[in-house]
Amino acid sequence: MLTPTDIAEYGERHVEKWLIENGYRCYHTTQRHGTKDIEARSSDNNMLVHINASLEPKPAPPLTHSDHDSVCSRAMMLGFDPWVAQVQVDRSGDLYHDIVWTKLK
């Protein structure tokens, strides 16, 4: 059985893989214990991506108000676009559905 830490790590790996395949360079940042964001940079766009991961069949949890404010604030400070990536993994850690991307305001 996957632990919550395992689920989060698999989610991060899937998001990072997608970003790299789409031409981004990725840098991990840790704002709080247990929370990782990815700074994704390309020649056209810079993104700060917050990842919410879950074990199927449960959908990824919605972004909390606190996390929303934190991601948007940090992205603004960096001059990046704030995004959240919602990821579902199966019991083996494989991607269960496509990543759901949402640009934050």
Rank of each mutant, 00 (worst) to 15 (best):
M1I: 10
L2M: 04
L2T: 10
P4S: 13
T5D: 10
T5N: 02
I7F: 01
E9L: 00
G11V: 07
G11D: 14
R13G: 08
E16K: 04
K17M: 00
W18Q: 13
W18R: 04
I20E: 05
E21A: 02
E21S: 14
G23K: 03
Y24F: 00
Y24G: 03
R25H: 08
C26A: 02
Y27W: 09
H28T: 08
H28A: 00
R32W: 15
R32E: 00
R32S: 14
H33S: 15
G34A: 13
E39A: 12
A40M: 09
R41S: 14
S42G: 08
N46L: 12
N46T: 04
N46C: 10
N46Y: 04
M47L: 03
L48T: 00
V49H: 07
V49R: 06
V49Y: 03
H50P: 05
N52W: 01
A53E: 10
A53C: 05
A53Q: 09
A53V: 11
S54N: 09
L55S: 05
L55T: 01
E56R: 04
P57N: 11
P59T: 07
P59S: 02
P61F: 09
P61G: 12
P62F: 12
T64W: 08
H65P: 01
S66Q: 15
H68T: 13
H68N: 09
H68W: 14
V71F: 03
C72H: 09
C72D: 05
R74P: 04
A75D: 11
M76H: 15
L78E: 08
L78R: 05
G79W: 03
F80L: 11
F80T: 13
D81G: 03
P82I: 00
V84I: 03
A85I: 01
Q86R: 12
V87K: 02
Q88H: 12
D90C: 08
D94Q: 07
D94A: 15
L95H: 04
L95Y: 04
H97N: 08
D98G: 06
I99Y: 00
V100F: 06
V100G: 01
K103A: 12
L104T: 06
L104F: 06
L104H: 06
K105H: 13
